[in-house]
Structure formats: structure tokens, C-alpha cells
Design a binder for these strands. Structure first.
Length: 236
DNA sequence: GTGGTGTGCATGTAACGGCC
DNA sequence: GGCCGTTACATGCACACCAC
């Protein structure tokens, strides 16, 4: 087994081991190399960005934080092009920073020829509706808030230009409609569901409080005619 | 003390280029 | 094509350090 294969195998072995982890000695025996070699391989994997933690002492070993990454995917050139262009086409989405990171990884994995083809195809994709949205720092917070359901404190400027400081809300969804992105959240001050335009949110801060579950449709009714949920299951 | 990782240094080996 | 020298990289040994 060459080093490239072993690096891949070690990552998958640690992923399979879960929180139990594996010691360098165990991995060394498993891949028929010295423990020192395993340690260097693990270092290489860590340098490449894999979230591997080392725990010294009895019962220790290497542990891969499986929640931080997905297993390796094998995409065809056309699939990789489709994903890359989809990510590049929506640079203003609330989760755009993560999208740009993913796009960089895909472009790095592509061959030069595939990148050239994807770039050429992108030049022939004209997109009219590139919606403006939140500040990057705010977008990241709101993305996490919606995913985790954590109570979030907003500084918000309403359409009259008056600013509300430290408004506690319970983020429930993100919506694109009427040329703008909105945060749909339960406003604790008004005790009602409210739409907050993302480009009017000056800052957003997560609290440690988990919001009580609320039904999105009961709170806000049906989505607008030009908006609706993005179903990955139905689209797949 | 035991059992684990981290690191410096020496050695082995494969790849590469130059020469005959 | 075969041989030889150089180079870069992988590997192993030994030891320091850390956690229980």
C-alpha cells in the first residue's frame, strides 16, 4: 500500500472508529508500518484540514471528529461542474461563505481541463436575480441560528430607519422573496412571527438559550407565491 | 509507573537526470 | 539501455513530554 492509499485508509479507519479512536500502534499494525510513520501520516492529514485530535495517556489515541466532515465523495466531472456552478451562481446566499469554501475544494480537486470547461460554461450562464443579502458576518450567525434553533439577539433597522437594539428573536427560517432575503423569526418583544430583511440586520449574536420548537406554517402561514421550501429530497 | 503522542536525527529508497 | 550520482521523501530509532 503506498502512502496516498494509506492516508485515505487511516482517515476512513478513524472515521469508522468514531469517538473510541485508534492508537498509533493499532494503526501501525493495521497498515503494517511503524507507529512513527502513522504519526507522520496523521500530521499530514491534520495539515490538510482533517479534524483529527490526539489524546495522550492510557486510553488515548487519535480521534476523527466525524461530525465536522463527510465521507469522501466521488463525483463525475459533470457532477462536479454542476455543483461548482451552482455554488458560484449564488454568491449572496446567507450561507455563501461555506459555499465559497466548498467551491474552492471542488475546483482544487478538478483537473485543469475540467476547470477550464466549467469556467467556460459559467461564462455562458447569465443570472438576472442575484439578490442582495446580509453582511457576511451576520449571514453566518443567522445560518447557524436557523440550523440550531438558538435564540439570537439582533440589532435591526426598520424601513423607517429607526434602529432596535438587542432584539431577542427565535430564528425559524430564511426566505427569498420580492428581491430580498428575510429571516423569519419569532419576535419575543411582539410575541409574534416577524420578517426581518437580512440587509437591514446590523448585527446578530447567538445566545446559549435553545428556542422552543414552533410550527413554521402556523406562525407565518403559507410561503409567498414566489418562495417556498428548498426540498433536497424532492430535487434529488 | 504505564501508556500514549511529538520531535530530532539518521538511514533507506525511489525518482530523476547525466553520461557512456 | 544500463550504470552512476544526486536529490527528495518516507521510514525507523531514540528520547522528551504528557495524562492518568
Amino acid at each position: 500500500m503506498n502512502r496516498t492509499d494509506r492516508l485515505y485508509a487511516i482517515a476512513e479507519e478513524l472515521r469508522a472508529a468514531g469517538s473510541r479512536g485508534r492508537t498509533s500502534a493499532w494503526l501501525a499494525q493495521r497498515f503494517e508500518v511503524a507507529a512513527r510513520t502513522v504519526k507522520r501520516d496523521v500530521t499530514a492529514l491534520q495539515d490538510s484540514g482533517l479534524p483529527i485530535w490526539a489524546q495522550a495517556g492510557p486510553g488515548g489515541g487519535y480521534v476523527l471528529d466525524a461530525s465536522a466532515t463527510l465521507p469522501p465523495l466521488n463525483l463525475t466531472a459533470s457532477e462536479a461542474t454542476a455543483v461548482a456552478l451552482s455554488l458560484a451562481a449564488m454568491p449572496q446566499l446567507p450561507f455563501a461563505p461555506d459555499g465559497r469554501s466548498a467551491l474552492t475544494k471542488i475546483l482544487t480537486a478538478m483537473t485543469a481541463a475540467e476547470r477550464t470547461r466549467a469556467t467556460a460554461l459559467g461564462d455562458r450562464l447569465w443570472i438576472r436575480d442575484r439578490r442582495t443579502t446580509a453582511r457576511p458576518a451576520v449571514a453566518g450567525v443567522l445560518d447557524e441560528a436557523v440550523r440550531t434553533g438558538v435564540v439570537t439577539v439582533l440589532d435591526y433597522v426598520d424601513k423607517k430607519g429607526s434602529t432596535t437594539r438587542r432584539r431577542p428573536v427565535e430564528p425559524m427560517a430564511l426566505a427569498a422573496t420580492g428581491g430580498h432575503w428575510f429571516l423569519l423569526a419569532w419576535c419575543r418583544r411582539r410575541r409574534a412571527g416577524r420578517w426581518f430583511r437580512l440587509d437591514r440586520i446590523e448585527s446578530a449574536h447567538l445566545t446559549t438559550e435553545l428556542a422552543a420548537p414552533r410550527d413554521l406554517l402556523e406562525t407565518f402561514g403559507a410561503p409567498p407565491v414566489d418562495a417556498g421550501p428548498v426540498s433536497l429530497v424532492d430535487s434529488a
